[in-house]
Design a protein around this nucleic acid. Structure first.
Lengths: 325, 325
DNA sequence: CTGAAAGCGCTAACAG
DNA sequence: CTGTTAGCGCTTTCAG
């Protein structure tokens, strides 16, 4: 593979000059540029980013840790983050933590070794302390790790209000919230808070059920919903903490002979593309995923440049009325 | 950030020695190792992978280009590839081509600049010629680019047979195949071939419809299916070329008042996790995604090591009977 | 405006 | 068995 030296030789200039045209620094006559570019083309030259990164001590790499790329929500997030990062001149190093503490810690180490310029955390199973030692631009999704690490989230409380209010307005008398384990650090918990508050205010019976630990292990939501229906046959509204959970709830309700939305109304959360693939489409509280993805990348870049950044980035949600509520 | 030099100084040895314990090369007394490890710990030392990669001219990076990480099939693929690659000591550089020729070409250039050790192509919109110049271990999914680039696919023809035979066995009299644009290079075309062959043999009326270009632009499958139902109201079986397409077909059929599987039977392809999230679960031809992911990584590694590899890697498919057929 | 040379952090001959 | 030293390919002072 040709190096900058080969190009210099071929173009009859010094490596410094080649480097200059490569980075377009300082004055360079058109003629000179042409000559160098020509040599590059002839040799099929591709600058070695490893060497550049090493020498500049800047890799233009962003690490992204998510629980699982196979999850539709994270799939969309990844897709948008990658796209925007690429447009800003950054490459993406992707990691699936599978919500495993040890693996997540390893990944963080690995990313530091890789000298990424920053880390976007969509998964954060570790303790606050573990994150303080990263010493790198970081931004998290849906968790406030410390007051010097910016976070991005949707307006969870508002989302919970929208969903629950919709159920109430549609006349539900007994509603349930289904979600993952309510870890106190998770901002998604606010969806539940709002659910309770609205139900209370509207004088509606409400119950909450959740998984033990792994929020993203979907098969468990089937039995969970089934149990809900058996123990509370009079349930007529469900607020699921994600669209995937809503989909499972929808399925199980139907299998139990309930008409949706006739007997039971269901509202999801996230607004992933997949929602309109169901029949009827899922009614859901949509997060502006592309905007959030973009913000994540921007925050990494701004921190990298030493800029001061806001710590809270709460994005507005929107109720998308499908046919399940 | 501490360097190997700092560690050497702190441990009272040379950098060579530190490098040796880092790579566990040659004989090293336990005592010496301890000393070095201790120094590393004290300094919170993390070897700089950029420097290592540069010096060894091996990055332990694998580039993965997919059409879109938000697509459930690719989401699962990415997830498995990442997991296996990581276990083998490789990191993943992810790219979304969005099926855009120019972008894909740019990504390939970028990955070469990044000195990835190999490229896994889940997206391949370019001409054969463009790929011959990569000069790097490559493996593709579902497309045979040339006879020296290994490819991975499911047994498309067999899958098409399974799906179509199922429809025939269930008594369908007029069936349709819905898929993306049938690009001749795409191995997925064999699903269609099998569909036609089986339908012919069983004496069943059959038609095929497909999108114009972008296979992964799902919204278009709605209208496409709607048109199908209007022009051929007597359709009683659909073989969709992916689970996502099947999901859209399911939805549209229902919206047109058809009972599934009573009036129309639907079979998908891929076997993504999402299939059992529908009610009823989608009947589909499942590909062994984890095995295929693993093979992709193995093939990159083996080629990298200069090993000779088979060119064809066709994986068995399995009919998964959900409730739509 | 251009080039020589030092250095980014690590590896690997090659000596000792 | 351990250390010296010359790269890996590029950037960036610092002279000229």
């Amino acid at each position: 593979m040709p190096t900058i030296k080969d190009v210099a030789l071929r173009a009859g200039v010094s490596v410094t000059t080649v480097s200059r045209v490569l980075n377009n620094r300082g004055y360079l006559s058109e003629e000179l540029k042409k000559k160098v570019y020509h040599a590059m083309d002839e040799l099929h030259y591709r600058p070695n980013e490893l060497a550049r990164s090493l020498s500049r001590s800047k890799s233009n790499l962003i690490g992204l840790i998510v629980p699982n790329a196979a999850n539709p929500f994270f799939g969309e997030l990844i897709s948008h983050i990658e796209e925007y990062a690429y447009n800003q001149g950054y490459r993406l190093l992707l990691c699936n933590s599978l919500l495993d503490r040890k693996k997540e810690a390893e990944y963080i180490d690995m990313l530091r070794s890789s000298r990424v310029d920053g880390i976007i955390l969509g998964s954060h199973t570790l303790e606050v302390e573990d994150y303080r030692h990263i010493h790198l631009p970081v931004v998290t999704f849906d968790r406030q790790i410390s007051d010097d690490i910016p976070y991005i989230s949707s307006d969870n409380y508002r989302g919970g209000e929208l969903a629950t209010t919709l159920l109430a307005d549609k006349g539900c008398r007994k509603i349930a919230h289904i979600g993952g384990h309510p870890h106190p650090d998770l901002l998604a918990l606010k969806r539940l808070d709002a659910f309770k508050a609205v139900a209370m205010k509207r004088g509606i019976a409400h119950i909450e059920i959740h998984t033990d630990v792994d929020v993203f292990h979907y098969p468990q939501y089937g039995p969970l919903t089934a149990r809900l229906l058996e123990e509370h046959p009079d349930i007529d509204g469900i607020f699921a903490s994600s669209d995937m959970i809503a989909a499972y709830a929808l399925k199980v309700c139907r299998e139990h002979g309930r008409k949706i939305p006739g007997d039971i109304r269901i509202v999801g959360y996230d607004g992933v593309k997949l929602t309109d693939l169901f029949s009827p489409s899922l009614t859901t509280v949509a997060q502006p995923i592309p905007d959030m993805a973009r913000r994540a990348v921007d925050l990494i870049i701004r921190q990298m440049q030493g800029g001061q950044v806001e710590m809270e980035h709460v994005f507005p949600v929107e109720l998308v009325e499908g046919g399940t509520a």
